[in-house]
Lab assay of single mutants.
Amino acid sequence: VRLVQFQKNTDEPMGITLKMNELNHCIVARIMHGGMIHRQGTLHVGDEIREINGISVANQTVEQLQKMLREMRGSITFKIVP
């Protein structure tokens, strides 16, 4: 398990697509080339996201998580399992 932190201070999309796997874990499905996450190089396709800013992603839908990420500003921390 590791923590990945980055800054999001604009309306620029993060450039990641999330999916739920068969165990209902949140997985990074795709990283858009040239997007914020791609430029930082901190997340990778297949990484499992456990928490966003200390909030568990368990029992949340992809749509709920994407909305939460769109609305966040400032420092964002993901707890991930590579």
Rank of each mutant, 00 (worst) to 15 (best):
E22A: 11
E12S: 07
G34A: 04
R50L: 15
M36E: 14
R39E: 09
L3K: 11
S75F: 10
E12Y: 04
K8R: 11
K19T: 12
L18T: 02
I55E: 14
S56Q: 09
H38L: 03
A29P: 00
L18A: 01
S75P: 13
L3V: 13
M68G: 09
F6Q: 02
Q66T: 12
N53S: 05
I37L: 07
Q64W: 07
L18M: 06
M14H: 04
Q66W: 04
H33M: 11
I80K: 01
H38S: 09
R2G: 04
E22W: 06
L65F: 04
I37E: 03
E48I: 08
G41C: 06
C26Q: 01
A29F: 03
V62I: 11
E48G: 04
K8P: 04
M32D: 15
T77W: 12
M68S: 13
V57R: 00
T17V: 13
N21Y: 04
R73E: 12
G34P: 03
R39K: 13
T42L: 13
V57Y: 02
N9C: 07
I31E: 01
N21G: 05
V62E: 14
R70V: 12
L18Q: 01
T17Q: 13
E63H: 07
R30P: 00
I55L: 10
E22F: 04
T17M: 10
K67S: 10
M36I: 15
L18E: 00
L43V: 12
R39M: 06
E22L: 06
I16K: 00
K8W: 06
L43Y: 01
G35H: 08
Q64L: 08
A58Y: 09
G15F: 03
R39S: 10
V1L: 07
M68P: 02
I16Q: 01
L18K: 01
G54C: 04
S56H: 07
A58D: 10
R2I: 11
R30Q: 12
M36K: 07
H33P: 14
T42G: 13
K8D: 03
P82W: 03
P82V: 07
G34E: 06
Q7T: 15
M20I: 10
V45K: 04
K79G: 10
R30H: 15
P13G: 11
I37G: 04
L18V: 07
R50T: 11
L23I: 15
H25K: 12
R50G: 03
E71L: 08
R39L: 06
I37A: 14
G34M: 04
R39Y: 03
V1E: 15
S75G: 13
G54A: 05
K79L: 07
M72Q: 09
P13F: 06
H25A: 12
R2M: 14
N21M: 04
H38M: 08
Q5M: 15
V28W: 00
L18G: 00
L18C: 04
F6I: 11
M72P: 04
